[in-house]
Design a protein around this nucleic acid. Structure first.
Length: 425
DNA sequence: TGGGGTTAT
DNA sequence: ATAACCC
């Protein structure tokens, strides 16, 4: 498995949009937070998720661009996933800036070519975790070395075609590939040989750094006295199962050993489209309606371009509360009436006002508008996306549904051409 | 802490 | 519908 992780993705996209920002310290701002920044800014002490106030104190020359509209990042993100999809169908997205690629089949093909040509000279591309020596008589090592060459080709293609740099990690599963990709940081790549697996996983100083063990599970583990990966490895399974449930207990304990049998699941098109806005205060029905009317046109446009029809709509809000400041969200969802669904394929304007009405009804299910309220976030989400009833030859659906044939060059580059595999065209 | 996403229960 | 996870 290869894990591809773009460097400070939003900042890179902004530097492509405006090349003058290239060699200057740059931060991407959402509300009063610098969500990410380029490496020029990091040299000067700027960190991800730093407040704008702290960032400007640290670095008055810092240039800030607003990154609240994710459109440019989302578009570039899918270009990266689609590019990787030219090499191999098994590409799974994680957020906007990471992808897993299962290259097992490509590696097998190259290994066979190598063995048939009697060639025993294979050279690793990039780093080997722990500087572990490679044994070319070990086919597992050879496979990972071939993986390193493919990862290099991925990164080169992403740079040549999209102008983006990033890291890659190659290992036997998703967990380990992700952990190893971060070991040499901007614009480098690393492979993990199985003999160094325990060193990598045990190098994590806190269990929350294990992908899959989040905030809540970490808190519960801490009450059990489990603080690091070694503690979790050694903890009695039976006790863990009673505390967290069999499913979570078995999964995270396997993770603590670096074991992860989850497959690379092709992400395909998105399962949902959402748009949200946060703010200091929103306390009247009229304001809520205005927020919804701000969010909807953008969303309807995205759905229109996607070509599928959503069958469910959801409204999410966050109410102000001084205690438990984060994560007090509530939502209400409902099916979209069939007569409205039909209109999604056409002009978005005819959907707008009936949809606002539906969303305001959902709002009133959550909030008694006769009582005072104080919202700090409104979000609208369309989900349960279904393909249009694709009909005959002339319809839009017919053309949209046609799978575009692989452009070919990248795929042949990676798989090599030998006995009559190349197509006539 | 923002503005997104996913899956499991 | 919520809760957990990911970025």
């Amino acid at each position: 498995i290869v894990h591809v992780d773009l460097d400070c993705f939003y900042a890179q996209v902004e530097m492509i949009r405006n090349p003058e920002l290239r060699d200057k310290p740059l931060g991407v701002q959402q509300k009063y937070i610098v969500v990410t920044c380029n490496y020029e800014a990091r040299k000067l002490g700027i960190k991800k998720m730093m407040s704008v106030k702290d960032a400007k104190e640290k670095c008055p020359q810092l240039i800030l661009v607003n990154g609240e509209d994710l459109t440019p990042y989302r578009e570039m993100s899918y270009k990266v996933t689609e590019l990787l999809g030219e090499f191999c169908p098994l590409v799974e997205r994680l957020g906007f800036d990471e992808n897993f690629v299962d290259i097992t089949e490509i590696v097998e093909k190259r290994l066979n070519q190598l063995q048939q040509s009697g060639c025993s000279r294979v050279c690793v591309s990039g780093h080997v975790y722990n500087h572990q020596a490679i044994n070319l008589l070990d086919t597992t090592h050879v496979r990972l070395v071939i993986g390193s060459q493919i990862a290099e080709e991925f990164r080169e293609a992403i740079y040549a075609r999209l102008g983006l740099t990033g890291c890659a990690g190659v290992a036997s599963n998703k967990l380990l590939s992700k952990l190893v990709s971060g070991t040499f940081k901007p614009n480098q790549q690393t492979i993990l040989l199985p003999e160094s697996c325990q060193d990598l996983i045990r190098s994590l100083d806190h269990i929350q750094k294990v992908p899959g063990i989040g905030y809540k599970t970490t808190k519960r583990l801490e009450t059990l006295g489990v603080r690091n990966v070694c503690d979790l490895q050694a903890f009695p399974s039976a006790v863990l199962e009673k505390e967290l449930g069999v499913s979570i207990a078995q999964r995270i304990q396997k993770l603590s050993y670096g074991e992860d049998d989850s497959p690379v699941t092709p992400s395909g098109p998105p399962q949902s489209f959402s748009d949200e806005d946060s703010f200091k205060k929103c306390s009247s029905e009229v304001e809520v309606k205005e927020k919804i009317e701000e969010l909807l046109p953008n969303l309807l446009d995205r759905i229109y371009k996607d070509g599928r029809q959503p069958h469910t709509v959801r409204l999410t809000i966050r109410q102000f509360s001084s205690t438990n400041k984060w994560f007090n969200r509530e939502s209400r969802q409902c099916p979209i009436p069939p007569h409205l669904i039909q209109k999604f394929g056409k002009e978005t304007s005819s959907v707008l006002s009936p949809m606002v009405d539906i969303l305001m009804k959902l709002f009133r299910k959550m909030i008694d508008v006769d009582q005072p309220f104080h919202l700090t976030l409104v979000s609208v989400c369309f989900s349960n996306l279904k393909d249009l009833p694709s009909s005959k030859k002339g319809s839009i659906g017919f053309y949209l549904k046609q799978v575009s044939p692989p452009s070919g060059s990248a795929k042949r580059e990676v798989e090599g051409v030998s006995q009559g595999e190349g197509s006539a065209s």
